[in-house]
Design a protein around this nucleic acid. Structure first.
Lengths: 209, 209
DNA sequence: CCGAGTAACTTACTGGGAGTAACTTGACTC
DNA sequence: GAGTCAAGTTACTCCCAGTAAGTTACTCGG
């Protein structure tokens, strides 16, 4: 008598591809976030999902591919949050500040996301590098747009000059995010954003006053 | 007759520890610079030096340890070059600009060094992470010193605020260095430094004028 | 010149993890 | 219920970081 174990534990049913991909991505995001890229093995992720390793390879191609997929999704969420804050602001100055506040807040509220983002340097070499750059480029473009809006109509700035400014700001925010996580008692997102904003807006020279 | 093969090809003589360590470090720097951290195997470095792998482990402990040693030496050279430029300048503004010019120039002239520096994110996790941070911290400290010198004597800035500014500038320069390597025709070190300097000094707001 | 001691160095291995070839199982269609 | 195709698995290979245990060259006191 096939002792139908009570109310039928659904014993690992098959799911369609999209659902499994999401499941795998969720698990990967969590584990990468906890242990970092190097510290995570594909077997571990497979075990977590309750699936075998080759399935993950079938869907994501490689460890880099899976990591990149996590990275892209997280970056997109972050970009959405920041964009929303920026668009809701009344003027350029407020927009930039709101963007910074949201950036630091989001990272405070999503520590796992954060770890994945930090590890993206891992992809510096290899074929995934270019894809990783493109993901990051969205952010620089948002900043560049804000910078352009802040310049007078007939300004004399070249595209390279605008890029230099936008890249600088992007690099600054990323470094500050890292700094805050190592700081025993980091300044609040608002405070950090305010100081950064003042500095970027006024410049070093006028800070003397 | 021990046929002294002509003018004695020294057939792999032993060397004292310090000399071997330097030899290993040089080879490691070159290969890490060419293939990146992940793409380099310890066997490869060992073969390059003409020595067996365990010797490298005896001297440097681990792959991370060896990489960190390369990183430290390169960072020290870079810091020296930049410090010298900064100290030779007549005032704070010139000092900062000279520092930026030297930073970008050095990285242009030492592409291998550069690749290693980019890959330092590789150490984000693991026990080497803290050591890597300390190496980088020297740079931030140099910048922080310049920032402090530029502020009036009885200023009202907290240490955290100064750190925010210094970290931002450091992050900006690193990101710009990466940007320049991907740029098909990057602006010259002087040009990049000038634009960055103007932006940092005047601030976004005054750029409008 | 010779043995003892030591530092430089090697051979030969383990373990773990990325990636893959080849096969099986379940669900749906006609 | 036979055919078919996607979902999924077992059972490997290879590569590479790291190590245990031994061997060889140099040095220094006698």
């Amino acid at each position: 008598m096939t002792s139908t174990t009570d109310h039928a534990v659904p014993p690992k049913r098959r799911r369609d591809r999209a659902a499994r991909e999401r499941e795998i991505l969720d698990a990967a995001e969590r584990i990468f976030g906890e242990r970092g890229y190097q510290g995570t093995s594909m077997d571990e992720i497979a075990a977590e999902v309750g699936v075998s390793k080759p399935l993950i390879y079938q869907y994501y191609g490689s460890k880099d591919g899976l990591f990149l997929a996590c990275l892209s999704r997280l970056r997109a969420q972050l970009l959405d949050a920041v964009s929303e804050a920026v668009l809701a602001a009344p003027d350029a100055e407020e927009a930039m500040k709101a963007g910074f506040v949201e950036w630091f807040s989001f990272l405070d509220d999503h520590p796992r996301a954060w770890s994945v983002l930090v590890d993206e340097g891992m992809l510096a070499a290899g074929p995934a590098a270019q894809a990783a750059d493109e993901v990051r480029a969205d952010f620089v473009e948002l900043i560049a747009t804000m910078v352009r809006l802040n310049l007078p109509a007939g300004h004399a700035f070249t595209e390279d000059e605008i890029q230099i400014v936008a890249q600088s700001i992007s690099g600054a925010t990323e470094r500050l995010a890292i700094w805050r996580t190592k700081h025993p008692a980091p300044p609040s997102p608002t405070q950090t954003a305010t100081t950064l904003m003042t500095f970027l807006w006024q410049g070093l020279n006028t800070l003397r006053a």
